[in-house]
């Protein structure tokens, strides 16, 4: 078993699936010879050839649009958008076509594609490189939105996303790409989509998060444990469709919930989870549900970035307030 960081796990998942399914191909800007600007596709073109690892012209709209045409004709394209801030030109194609091709043809055609992009801040990148567009996609019917939080999860969830018969937006937390390594068995075993994973058991409060902010959530849970507050930590992993059952089951036990995410607060996905708790778990709650999210501000450039991203301190503060309220 190899020790892999998250970007290497993405690379291994792509290689495994390309090796085992000739319908899988990779396309995007600089994904071929250069192996991707983050090296997610490194070595794939040498191994599988330029016809299956396509350096496309520099146009995100057509990367998404041609992937749809390929998918409709039986291929399984994995399209890379180089940075999350450049994903917006794809939205017409993802919303108007990828997510609805199956429905509008009554299942005659479908769109088994994956749109991968590095997402979120924390690496002091230039402007337009630190956005977290998850909530734009979670509002789109017919799409899956998946966010891995570790190398193991990136490997298993990406395999599942490629094998899924419907379109998946796969948002890879940029700052986790090389943050840590994990043992990842390159055995082609996919993880299930549409389910939350329990990362840590506890009975005092449920901390719900996904992607990069699980780092801060786990660190906060460690600090809280030292104070005697035992937090349960859930990794949502697939934002849409949402496994609300697992969240409700946990909150029913703990009676408290703090939701943490890196995207802006208003209309963010945390609101959907909070609404689900209000609708189905209100009588289990001992305190109001709190959200720790990015402020509703434009993603700042590097100097203010650390104050923008949800911090361990903000999470601990929210948990303490929640504990005090009950």
């Amino acid at each position: 078993m190899a020790e892999l960081n998250l970007v290497e796990a993405v690379n291994h998942a792509l290689a495994y699936e390309m090796e085992h399914d000739p319908a899988v191909l990779v396309l995007g800007e600089d994904v071929g010879v250069n192996g991707g600007v983050f090296r997610a596709t490194v070595g794939l073109q040498a191994r599988f050839g330029p016809a299956r690892v396509l350096d496309t012209p520099l146009a995100e709209t057509a990367i998404a649009g041609t992937a749809i045409g390929m998918a409709a004709m039986g291929l399984k394209p994995v399209a890379e958008i180089q940075f999350s801030g450049f994903i917006y030109p794809t939205i017409d194609h993802i919303v108007n076509h990828a997510s609805r091709l199956r429905n509008r043809t009554r299942g005659r055609l479908s769109c088994p594609m994956v749109l991968r992009t590095p997402s979120g801040g924390g690496i002091h990148a230039p402007e337009h490189h630190s956005e977290n567009p998850e909530a734009l996609f979670t509002n789109v019917p017919g799409l899956r939105v998946v966010v891995p939080s570790s190398p193991q999860r990136a490997y298993g969830l990406l395999l599942a996303a490629i094998r899924d018969p419907d379109p998946v937006v796969f948002l890879e937390p940029t700052r986790l790409y090389r943050l840590f390594k994990q043992e990842v068995a390159d055995d082609g075993e996919a993880l299930p989509l549409d389910v939350c994973f329990t990362l840590r058991a506890g009975n005092d409060i449920t901390l719900v998060s996904w992607g990069a902010t699980l780092q801060e959530v786990q660190a906060a849970a460690d600090l809280l444990a030292a104070e005697g507050v035992m937090a349960e930590v859930l990794d949502v992993a697939t934002l849409k469709p949402l496994d609300m059952e697992t969240i409700l089951e946990s909150v029913t036990r703990t009676g408290r919930c703090v939701i943490v995410h890196e995207a802006a607060q208003t209309g963010g996905f945390g609101a959907e989870i909070a609404a689900g708790l209000a609708e189905h778990g209100l009588y289990s709650l001992l305190a109001p549900v709190r959200r720790v999210a990015a402020y509703d501000v434009v993603v700042p450039l590097a100097r203010l970035e650390s104050q923008y991203l949800p911090s361990v301190e903000r999470i601990v503060d929210a948990v303490r307030k929640t504990m005090e309220a009950s």
């Binding site: 191909l25 016809a51 299956r52 709209t61 057509a62 998404a64 649009g65 041609t66 992937a67 749809i68 045409g69 390929m70 998918a71 409709a72 004709m73 039986g74 291929l75 394209p77 017409d92 194609h93 108007n96 076509h97 091709l101 509008r104 043809t105 055609l109």
Partner: peptide
């Protein structure tokens, strides 16, 4: 295998290019 009619203007050109690539591959 024919595509359904495309209402959002010109988006279908990208789909056709992708379909054509699948045939070539």
């Amino acid at each position: 295998s024919d595509f359904p009619v495309c209402v959002p203007i010109a988006t279908q050109v990208c789909h056709a290019a992708g379909a054509a690539y699948a045939f070539k591959l």
